[in-house]
């Protein structure tokens, strides 16, 4: 069980690095918001895997709260883009 958790964490960190590449490259703000949403999702997954690895279910609460706030951040960014952000054209 121990090596499965470590392997899962390694795969998730690789996914996090790839998403970071897209976050830096852009090119538009909407692309970066998509990358941020995926980063929040990967962070939720990492917290759940860490809770399994150390055997402490209290970390599940943190993952739940992060999933809630990431959705709010995404909705806020989308409204900002539509209502007053700079456009690409």
């Amino acid at each position: 069980m121990e090596w499965v958790a470590v392997a899962t964490l390694l795969i998730l960190v690789l996914a996090l690095a790839l998403t970071g590449v897209r976050l830096v490259l852009g090119p538009s703000l909407a692309d970066r918001v998509v990358a941020l949403e995926l980063i929040a999702l990967i962070a939720v997954a990492i917290m759940v895997v860490y809770a399994i690895q150390v055997g402490r279910p209290a970390f599940m609460d943190v993952a739940l709260v992060l999933a809630l706030t990431a959705f709010m951040a995404t909705v806020g960014f989308a409204r900002f883009l539509e209502r007053g952000g700079k456009t690409d054209e």
Partner: peptide, 21 residues
């Protein structure tokens, strides 16, 4: 079952990240 689901979930997220790039 837990190990299979953990690895499958992580690989799906990795596929999503590769697609994002």
């Amino acid at each position: 079952l837990t190990a299979i689901m953990l690895l499958a979930g992580a690989l799906l997220i990795l596929i999503g990240a590769i697609g994002a790039v």
